[in-house]
């Protein structure tokens, strides 16, 4: 079957031609992106979170365009095909915390609601401090450059234990599932709308994608804007109770160490040096992020107490 003909028929488009074969279509309704899916459960998750994140005119996810009969996808040659808007201009970060807060807040809300329904889809990242420790000690014998990584081990262990304690304090509650990666670079702009381009990957359970997002935001926009963003997220998804503690636990987790150890497997000196530099930078930024987030949580608590 000819994909382009099927799309034209199902979406009742008047003119359709490839702008970039297999990826971008030029239609009478504007530029449309074509995405192919093989797993229908994964596709259903992506339809769900995007739909729930798109019911406003301020910040929306790139939802699946409906066919003439109202279906979010078509089946062609055993694959599922979805159609999306293609938007190019990037959306600003600092000064636009409200729109980003709405986007992330509604994404988290959708992720929490769908947490059980799509639990089998999720990737779980496990943390083994023991493995990190032995890898760093072994590599440290060969490369002196790993000294800064070694110095962080005590603090990493402490943070890991603190994270476990915070998780315990939060109790047994569900974690949201999230699209990954969650990146500021995926925010596009059209008619002043924040248009977020989602991935077609499996979701991840927990706040790791949000942690990366907040760290990037901090790097680019600074602590004041980060707090404003947290405040805006909190308007749509409460971070003041258990979920806020679970995010705190995620920020405490020394993931930088795992990432660094994974990268060190290549054993090429140039690569090792840049990995360590990246580690040092991320370690420092994560400290600031943790500090900003704890400060924001305290401010919120103080306001409630007053």
């Amino acid at each position: 079957m000819n994909v382009i003909e099927e799309i034209k028929k199902a979406y009742e488009l008047r003119t359709v031609s490839w702008k970039q074969k297999g990826k971008l279509l030029d239609t009478d309704c504007g530029l449309k992106r074509v995405v192919l899916w093989s797993d229908d459960n994964l596709l259903k998750w992506h339809v769900k979170w995007r739909d729930q994140t798109g019911r406003n005119s301020v910040a929306i996810a790139d939802r699946m365009i409906r066919t003439a009969t109202g279906h979010p996808w078509i089946e062609v040659n055993g694959k599922y095909v979805t159609l999306h808007d293609e938007v190019e201009g990037s959306y600003d970060r600092a000064g636009h915390e409200k729109a980003w807060g709405l986007l992330i807040g509604t994404m988290l809300k959708a992720g929490l609601e769908a947490s059980q329904e799509f639990s089998t889809l999720c990737q779980e990242k496990t943390y083994s401090f023991g493995q990190c420790l032995s890898a760093v000690h072994q590599l440290g014998k060969q490369f002196t450059v790993l000294e800064s990584v070694k110095q962080c081990l005590v603090e990493a262990d402490k943070r890991l234990k603190q994270a476990e304690e915070v998780k315990k304090a939060a109790g047994e509650c569900l974690l949201p599932i999230m699209d990954q990666p969650l990146s500021v670079l995926h925010g596009k702009q059209i008619f002043n709308i924040l248009f977020y381009k989602g991935s077609h990957h499996e979701p991840i359970r927990g706040y790791l994608p949000l942690r990366h997002f907040l760290r990037d935001w901090l790097k680019e926009c600074g602590p004041h804007s980060l707090k404003k963003l947290l405040h805006c997220i909190n308007e749509h998804y409460s971070l003041q109770q258990e979920q806020g503690l679970l995010l705190l636990a995620e920020l405490l987790m020394p993931w930088e160490l795992v990432h660094c150890v994974e990268q060190l497997e290549t054993k090429e000196l140039a690569h090792i040096i840049s990995t360590v530099e990246q580690f040092e930078q991320n370690w420092d930024f994560n400290r600031i992020l943790l500090h900003c987030y704890s400060e924001w949580l305290d401010e919120k608590r103080r306001k409630v107490a007053l």
Binding site: C29, R55, S57, R63, I65, R66, G70
Partner: peptide, 13 residues
Amino acid sequence: YPTKHGDYVVRSG
């Protein structure tokens, strides 16, 4: 008429 995403109303402001 539904929107391209199948909604019958759009909220703006």
